[in-house]
Design a protein around this nucleic acid. Structure first.
Length: 407
RNA sequence: GCGACCGUAGCUCAGUCAGGUUAGAGCGCCAGGUUGUGGCCCUGGAGGACGGGGGUUCAAGUCCCCUCGGUCGUCCCA
């Protein structure tokens, strides 16, 4: 019996990994284009960081963390999300100035796996720390928009503002009161959550409170929050980014304030359709014991994006077939100049019949098949058995294929 | 965490309800034939402790219990 991988973990391997590689490369590229530098933070941190950052009563922290003691009894946790670690790193290096950083890596949550939800999953994300300007919110959303569109995820953008310390308190109290009045319409698992986190109920698929009678945060925004949200909307309008404001959009992590947003796939059939989410977290730095530092960012789930936009796997450019006495070592020499030119080249490593080699060529979905016989090489495009001349090869950037240049 | 369904060949599954000789199919894979050196067709071959453990029985892939995985919903979230 072979050893299995733990529940909810898995392997991203061929042929699916080709698409992963593409998407991650796209991310490296695009986040750089927007001026976000790479950051790599620890995959595990002191448990306290997440308790304070994400929120001690939050379910992600109370029920879903992989927490363990190290050899000296210190409590460590696998990161359930990326923002807390980035903010900690920012504060640790001085906690001043502007940071625009992008990350990509695995996150961990102890949950029941299902489509689009695993215990180890991969997120990409950015954090723009040190700016309270609405321009930062808009830039971050613009990056998300462009990335999702490049990946090919059809989606809808939802935005909202949760207000700040000034105005959200009154809304929360009124919301608790309203929920308490319609407690009979709530599902059994949420009736005792009204006091703790009434906003959570807005997300529930079973609770049926009368949404008309629930207080909308928009009625409670203070002047600065209203202005900020107005600027964000204006900025999105100016960029031609379509969105819908949703009074019911609440996010799961406690550190959010003001702007929140979420991209929901419009093609995903599963119940896990949120593909990317983020917002502003102006209070997070203080929660972690630093000076007040504003920030805004997002995280997106690569696994879910690729479920929504599977794409096509890319094949080889060239597959070499060796006749007669031609060995894999000979083919390797023929392949070298092509590989130097950046072409994806493959051939059979084990001795196989010519027929088997051609079948392998077909499987590799190579655009060209090269047949090596003695010191000659004949290139074929697709299945028509037309031999390509040196001029043709040159046209396709394959002049290295001239037998004269053989190493 | 809760609920439902499902684990038999690399993949998709039949066989389980009415327990009984060496456990099957298609596809894929390997070798050979045919072919315009690879998409079709023909022949042969490799490949399974039926997820794991315990129990009932003369006999368990099949019945019972437990366990581990998977899928879907709920909770939660990316």
């Amino acid at each position: 019996m072979i050893i299995r991988s733990p529940k909810g973990t898995g392997v991203i391997g061929p042929p699916r990994s080709a698409r992963w590689r593409e998407v991650l490369a796209l991310w490296e590229d695009l986040s750089g284009v927007y001026g976000y530098e790479l950051i790599v933070t620890p995959v595990f941190e002191f448990t306290e960081l997440f308790e304070r950052g994400v929120g001690e009563t939050n379910e992600v922290v109370t029920k879903q963390m992989y927490t363990f003691a190290d050899r000296r009894g210190r409590s460590l946790s696998l990161r359930p999300e990326g923002t807390a670690g980035v903010m900690r790193a920012y504060l640790a290096q001085g906690g001043t100035g502007r940071w625009k950083v992008a990350y990509s890596g695995p996150m961990f949550r102890y949950e029941q796996p299902q489509g689009g939800r695993r215990r180890q999953f991969w997120q990409i994300g950015v954090e723009c720390v040190g700016s309270s300007s609405a321009a930062a919110d808009v830039e971050v959303i613009a990056l998300a928009e462009e990335f999702l569109s490049a990946v090919g995820v059809e989606n809808q953008l939802l935005i909202n503002s949760l207000g700040d310390g000034e105005c959200r308190g009154a809304h929360l109290e009124d919301m608790k009161a309203a929920m308490a009045r319609s407690i009979a319409d709530l599902c059994s698992s949420h009736r005792d959550v009204v006091e703790l986190n009434p906003l959570r109920i807005l997300d529930c698929k079973l609770c049926r409170p009368d949404h008309e009678t629930l207080p909308d945060i928009a009625e409670y925004w203070c002047g600065p929050c209203r202005d900020h949200f107005g600027e964000v909307r204006q900025g999105l309008d100016d960029l031609g980014i379509a969105y819908r404001r949703s009074s019911r959009l609440v996010r799961g992590l406690d550190y959010y304030s003001r702007t929140t947003f979420e991209y929901v796939s419009t093609t995903l059939e599963t119940s896990q359709s949120t593909v990317l989410g983020g917002g502003r977290y102006d209070g997070l730095a203080e929660t972690l014991g630093g000076r007040p530092v504003p920030g805004v960012g997002f995280a997106g789930g690569i696994d879910r994006m690729l479920m929504a936009a599977p794409g096509e796997s890319v094949g080889m450019d060239v597959f070499l077939v060796g006749e007669k006495e031609i060995t894999a070592f000979d083919l390797m020499e023929w392949a070298a100049p092509l590989r130097r030119a950046g072409l994806r080249v493959a051939f059979e490593l084990d001795p196989r019949s010519v027929k088997a080699q051609f079948k392998a060529a077909t499987r590799s979905s190579a655009r060209y098949v090269g047949v090596v016989s003695g010191v000659e090489l004949e290139m074929r495009e697709g299945r028509n058995r037309q031999t390509l001349g040196p001029e043709d090869l040159e046209k396709w950037g394959m002049k290295a294929f001239d037998p004269e240049t053989r190493p």
